[in-house]
C-alpha cells in the first residue's frame, strides 16, 4: 500500500458516498445517469467475485463489500425509491455499444483464459468507459449540479491517483499490470475535459454549464 493507492481508494469511496448522500438528502436523482450506476454495479460484481475465493486483508475485503453495497444501494434509489425523479429521457446512451465490445475484448485480451480472470478483465475494461452515459447526459442537458461535479471529480481522481500508484509500484515492487494500466489511462483521459471544466468553472464558484 502506498499513498497514491490509499488516497485513490478514499477518493473512490468519497465519490460513492457523495452520490448516495446527494440522492438521499435531495430525495431526487435528477441529473444522474442510472445507466452509469448500473454499469458500476456490474463492474464491482464482476471484479469482486474473488471475495469468495481469496482473502487479501481486512481493508481489502471491507472496501470491496462497501463498494458493492453502495453501488446496489445507488441503483435501488434511482430505479425504485426515487424512480419518479429519474430523468430517463436524457439518459439515452446505448450501453450495449459499451458492454458488447468490452465483453469481446475481455475474452480476446486477458492474462489467463479462465472465467474469473475474464470477468476481472471485463470489469477493468468496463469501468474505464462506465462513466460515458453520465458524461453524455451532462452534454445533452448542458449542465450539472455542483454536487454532481464533486462526485465526478472524486471518481476521476481515483483512477488518476491509481496511475501514480502503478508508476510507484513499477519502480519499487516491479509490479506491472498492462491491462489495468492501459484501461486506467483510457479512463483518466475520458475525464480530462471534465477536469478542465471543473477547475475553470466549479472551483471558481460557477455552476457547470456547457455552451449551447
Amino acid at each position: 500500500m502506498n499513498i497514491f493507492r490509499l488516497t485513490g481508494d478514499l477518493s473512490h469511496l468519497a465519490a460513492i458516498i457523495i452520490l448516495l448522500l446527494k440522492i438521499w438528502k435531495s430525495r431526487s436523482c435528477a441529473g444522474i445517469s442510472g445507466k452509469s450506476q448500473i454499469l458500476f454495479a456490474i463492474v464491482f460484481t464482476a471484479r469482486y467475485l474473488d471475495l469468495l475465493t481469496s482473502f487479501i486483508s481486512v481493508y481489502n475485503t471491507s472496501m470491496k463489500v462497501i463498494y458493492i453495497g453502495c453501488a446496489y444501494a445507488t441503483v435501488y434509489l434511482i430505479y425504485a425509491k426515487f424512480r419518479a425523479t429519474y430523468d430517463g429521457n436524457h439518459d439515452s446512451f446505448r450501453v450495449e455499444f459499451l458492454v458488447v465490445p468490452v465483453g469481446g475484448l475481455a475474452v480476446l485480451i486477458n492474462h489467463t483464459f479462465s472465467p474469473l480472470e475474464i470477468l476481472w478483465t471485463f470489469s477493468i475494461y468496463l469501468e474505464s468507459v462506465a462513466i460515458l452515459p453520465q458524461l453524455f447526459m451532462i452534454s445533452k442537458t448542458g449542465e450539472a449540479e455542483t454536487i454532481t461535479t464533486h462526485y465526478l471529480f472524486c471518481l476521476g481522481m481515483y483512477r488518476t491517483l491509481y496511475l501514480f500508484n502503478w508508476v510507484w509500484r513499477f519502480y519499487f515492487e516491479g509490479f506491472f499490470d498492462m491491462i489495468a494500466i492501459v484501461a486506467g489511462l483510457v479512463q483518466t483521459v475520458l475525464y480530462c475535459d471534465f477536469f478542465y471544466l471543473y477547475v475553470t468553472k466549479v472551483l471558481k464558484g460557477k455552476k457547470l454549464s456547457l455552451p449551447a
Binding site: 493507492r5 487479501i56 474469473l116
Partner: peptide
C-alpha cells in the same frame, strides 16, 4: 477451472 491469482488492488 484455474483460479486467477489474488489481486490486491480495488
Amino acid at each position: 477451472f484455474p483460479l486467477r491469482p489474488p489481486k490486491d488492488e480495488l
